[in-house]
Simulated scan of single mutants.
Amino acid sequence: MGSAMRGQAPSTAPDAATIEALAREALARIPSPFAEHLADVVLIVEEFADDETLDALGIEDPFDLSGVYHGRPIGEKSAFDSGALPDRIHLYRRAILDEWCDTGVPLQELVTHIVVHEVGHHFGLSDDDMHALEDAAG
């Protein structure tokens, strides 16, 4: 992915595995104390959000949703959650690629922004906190 993508435009759109690899790199750069809580978060890359997710968020156009966090915010977890599904970060490839084309932001930077935003929801962070975390993970 590295320098080959910087020098020339790719001939094909990045696939789900590429998006996932970029997202995993972004997660790996998130500093302590957040990193310790992210070990069990499942990362899932899909083409688009499903209708149930879009409806729950009041979003009509699937291109408007590039990522979502599913799970309970860290402050709301308890010892009784042991049987619950693991927390998940869903990334939606087609929406990410659309935003990438529209903004011209490097793909790694865009994916990092989306992952940090979803992690921010996980920790109940404010927008200012998320910007500081994104700077640390960038």
Rank of each mutant, 00 (worst) to 15 (best):
residue 1 M to L: 13
residue 4 A to N: 10
residue 6 R to V: 11
residue 9 A to H: 01
residue 11 S to M: 15
residue 15 D to Y: 03
residue 18 T to I: 13
residue 19 I to C: 04
residue 20 E to G: 08
residue 20 E to T: 09
residue 21 A to K: 10
residue 22 L to N: 01
residue 22 L to R: 03
residue 23 A to E: 09
residue 27 L to S: 07
residue 28 A to Q: 07
residue 29 R to D: 07
residue 31 P to Y: 02
residue 33 P to Y: 09
residue 39 A to E: 10
residue 45 V to C: 02
residue 46 E to T: 07
residue 46 E to V: 01
residue 47 E to N: 15
residue 48 F to T: 14
residue 50 D to A: 09
residue 50 D to W: 08
residue 51 D to Q: 15
residue 52 E to N: 06
residue 53 T to M: 14
residue 55 D to M: 03
residue 60 E to W: 01
residue 60 E to H: 05
residue 63 F to V: 01
residue 64 D to K: 15
residue 66 S to R: 13
residue 66 S to L: 13
residue 68 V to T: 10
residue 69 Y to S: 02
residue 72 R to L: 14
residue 76 E to P: 00
residue 77 K to V: 13
residue 80 F to L: 15
residue 82 S to G: 01
residue 82 S to F: 15
residue 83 G to W: 06
residue 84 A to L: 04
residue 85 L to E: 14
residue 88 R to A: 14
residue 89 I to M: 06
residue 90 H to L: 12
residue 90 H to Q: 09
residue 90 H to E: 11
residue 92 Y to S: 10
residue 93 R to N: 05
residue 93 R to P: 04
residue 94 R to M: 10
residue 100 W to C: 08
residue 100 W to Q: 08
residue 105 V to T: 15
residue 105 V to C: 12
residue 106 P to H: 03
residue 108 Q to P: 03
residue 108 Q to F: 02
residue 112 T to R: 09
residue 113 H to Y: 08
residue 115 V to S: 03
residue 115 V to Y: 04
residue 115 V to L: 07
residue 116 V to W: 06
residue 120 G to C: 09
residue 121 H to M: 05
residue 121 H to E: 04
residue 126 S to K: 05
residue 129 D to N: 08
residue 129 D to W: 07
residue 131 H to Q: 14
residue 134 E to G: 01
residue 134 E to V: 02
residue 134 E to D: 10
residue 136 A to D: 12
